[in-house]
Design a protein around this nucleic acid. Structure first.
Lengths: 211, 211, 211, 211
DNA sequence: GATGAATGAGCATTCATTCAT
DNA sequence: AATGAATGAATGCTCATTCAT
């Protein structure tokens, strides 16, 4: 029975993997359940056994992806100690992950809009989740006196929106070639926006220059 | 003949107006040409007489809207003299216009993504157009020594992306109630991002110079 | 008024010419009245002024073509004196005319079938008309004792059907390259079918060799 | 699984049967897929599950019919020994089959022309197939010295074309009442066309040899 | 007479979903 | 659990025909 459960879970996951590929390639509306069934080496009936419908697949896919992404964010944040660095880290992981997984990026930045009314609320929840992370650490920074008091929710939203535009543009036009190159220029602008001193670049881990 | 031409143009415009309403209400994919025909008090055949197809309607709609919006932007910019104020003005008009015309906002911020691959390139062109306006005036500001040298293209993109996120969130959740309220908090963050001093708020222009 | 009448007739003919081109190129069902209007440098409304509808155009076209073809047949027959030669001449003109006017051939051999029930009766009338011509001269030949008594109606139909198949095959496959080449081989077979001696080839006009 | 396969094949065949009826009654262009679905007691979707489209149905129908007809031809030919009798048999089966199955006749002699460009090539292939059968046996007859050397391909085409015209005329006008009556008059004309002696009528085979 | 805008019925095709096996 | 056959509603688009100007 444990065995069967695993098999079911594996199938479940396989369908989501297939859906991600298909949705990213053809877009939500132009993907058919048959496409997903084909890509996941299952039958249409099989897909409907594991999911109640096409919408549910997309929703489950967003949930799984968002939760994995948040986990990664939390993991990276845990390695930073300075509040601003933590906020920054959150942003950077998202950029890096999307740069490495275009399909994922398409899902959140493009397809979720086109999938229809039903997904918008959920998408906004995800935005809030990520913005909330940024915001929390900016709040810490304010509390610690590292940055001036600002509307941290709005600041988080700005950071997030800026990132979105950059990644979306990259997704749809291919520019700039290596997405991560944007980050070096992006950093100072965002930091300045909340009146933070430029901390050493991420990864330099505070080891440099402190006597 | 002049008369007939006007009649044709009027119908053309009426169809676009109807399409805007319908697309904003039901989304591009869930809107049928019949819906548009009904809303514009025309027959389906009439719609197809004026437009080659559904996609063309959406495209024409985006073009018309973007061109009107750009005109408004240019008009407002012309009333400002300081470069940073001009860049800011561009942003502000967009915010105000979208706040007053939710349907328009939906079109550009939501539906254009869901309408399919064919529209993405065009949408990005519009982004570039607006970002280009901001950028040009930031360049002027740099040249005038008003702000420090920054990657103005990226700065423009950040401003634009931040605005997008704010408006999108408002569109989909209704928060904050009056969208324009965001502007007051947004301003200092964006200005700081490019290292600009806070100019007096827009519209306070007449107050300048009073001791 | 005579002038206007001529203008109208000219337009009428121009539309038929255009229709012939269009029908031959795209087939009756895939040709639109717009296509015909375009090809005849008229407006759709103009076409409908001269003809009550698409069917009527096709019918008028068939009538005009058949009548011209019959005229040509009669003219050529008048130049022959031997009854069998006359029957043969009828066949030969049709072959030659269709070989030189593919569009015409398409009209009668292909499109008339696809145009729908309404045209079938008329098409069969045309078949009968041509077969009647052949038959009449075969009857003369029988009466003159030149050929044995045969079912001349059937013989006419056979001659006509054979010709049809040959031309149709040529129309749709392009073989044989020069359609008229078939004629030399066709002649003896058809003549033998009615038990006629092989007369000298048409065009040799009895002048050759007879002392 | 064998069972399901049968069920699928049965449905497949049922749809073709329905299509034959519908196409023969209304013509290819005036038949809708809905008509076929209705006639086959299936849903439109069901039809599309078994066939990729309307054209494919027509094509499959032609293929099935032609293959069945060819089988019948071969079977009848096998019962004759004389080459000319075999060629004749081929012709006769076609006449008889079409006389008994008007729908089939309509399909090949009328609708295939009206169905559009796409079908013409296939139709000509069928013509060639049947003509090839006749031709082969005429070749045998020539080789056996039974008939004089003639262009057997052309002779086959003539026989076939003659038959076509006769059947087509019967289909569209109803004359002669019993189509098969034509055959008795047709035989001598065709035989003579290739210079063959009149063999005893088909079916009289058992009478052969009685002094 | 001529034009072209407008109409509206018709149709092939797609696809999410259901269900018998 | 899984399959694939079946359903039926939905929709973009075409086009013969009409008619106001």
């Amino acid at each position: 029975m444990k065995f069967e459960q695993n098999r079911a879970e594996e199938r479940h996951g396989r369908i989501l993997d297939a859906a991600l590929k298909v949705f990213a390639r053809k877009g939500y509306r132009d993907s058919s359940v048959d496409d997903i069934a084909g890509q996941s080496a299952t039958s249409k009936g099989g897909v409907y056994f594991h999911f109640p419908g096409k919408q549910a697949i997309f929703l489950a896919l967003m949930d799984r992806a968002a939760s994995r992404l948040l986990d990664r964010v939390e993991a990276v944040i845990a390695q930073e100690s300075a509040p601003v660095a933590r906020a920054e880290a959150a942003l950077h992981v998202v950029l890096r992950t999307f740069a490495r997984h275009r399909a994922l990026a398409r899902l959140f930045l493009i397809e979720a809009y086109g999938a229809g009314r039903e997904f918008h609320a959920r998408l906004m929840e995800f935005h809030e989740l990520f913005i909330g992370v940024i915001r929390r650490h900016l709040d810490d920074a304010v509390a610690a006196g590292v940055i001036e008091p600002v509307d941290t929710e709005l600041a988080g939203r700005i950071w997030f929106g800026a990132l979105n535009e950059i990644i979306t543009y990259w997704l749809l036009t291919g520019r700039p070639g290596p997405l991560e190159d944007s980050y070096a220029s992006l950093r100072p602008l965002l930091f300045r926006s909340v009146g933070a001193d430029m901390p050493p670049p991420r990864g330099a881990a505070g080891a440099k220059g402190t006597p």
